[in-house]
């Protein structure tokens, strides 16, 4: 069985760290893994994604998840969740950061047309519901701030994911890897964010 995660968000939200943690876990526990990443142009304020595909037994060929095959979507931002929805399988799991980052183009259109409004997370969730009913909305920023740094939102979401069915690694397996990959002075904060995320409850 191949377990696939599509992660998505906006450049600078730390998706690469999430795939690195999972990748190193795969190396350590002898899973096959292949990932496809966005680099380059989408550095800041652009759409980014990572495809993560892993399996304990099967060889993985394509780094890209075929449409409709991701078991999980881990979305750091709501607009980008919907933008990548074709990759999620029907009734797949969405772990959604309760956060929306309005692109400049959207603001630009509002200034031109004052009656327009920004798209809301609820409108997006309504659309996501047409693909799946399993959507967990997590206030990752709040968790990260509680852990000590807003930048640990990504690790908080990963913590939540680690507490879902079928995710191949346990919290205790992830902890030493998180300690390995984050800067030394940020280890405690990230471990705390991972734990708080693991025990977090969905806000809607």
């Amino acid at each position: 069985m191949i377990y696939s995660i599509i992660t998505c968000g906006v450049g600078g939200q730390g998706l690469m760290l999430v795939s690195n943690i999972i990748g190193i876990a795969c190396a350590e526990y002898e899973y096959n893994i292949r990932t496809a990443e966005t680099h380059g142009l989408a550095q800041r304020s652009g759409s980014i994604y990572t495809h993560i595909r892993m399996s304990e037994t099967e060889q993985i060929y394509s780094p890209l998840i075929p449409y409709g095959e991701a078991d999980v979507m881990l979305a750091m931002e709501a607009i980008e969740a919907l933008r990548n929805i074709e990759f999620l399988k029907s009734e797949g799991l969405i772990v959604l950061n309760d956060y929306i980052w309005h692109p400049v183009q959207e603001t630009f259109n509002r200034v031109k047309e004052p009656k327009q409004t920004y798209i809301t997370i609820d409108e997006i969730i309504q659309k996501l519901h047409e693909i799946t009913n399993t959507i967990f909305k997590i206030d990752a920023l709040k968790i990260a701030n509680e852990a000590g740094n807003a930048l640990a939102s990504n690790v908080a979401l990963l913590g939540f994911l680690a507490n879902t069915e079928n995710f191949p690694f346990t919290l205790d397996q992830l902890k030493p890897i998180v300690s390995q990959v984050v800067p030394k002075k940020a280890v405690d904060i990230n471990i705390k964010a991972l734990e708080l995320g693991y025990n977090a409850t969905s806000t809607g």
Partner: peptide, 9 residues
């Protein structure tokens, strides 16, 4: 579903 999305360039 995506027709409601603003572009993010």
């Amino acid at each position: 579903l995506k027709s409601i999305l603003p572009p993010r360039i």
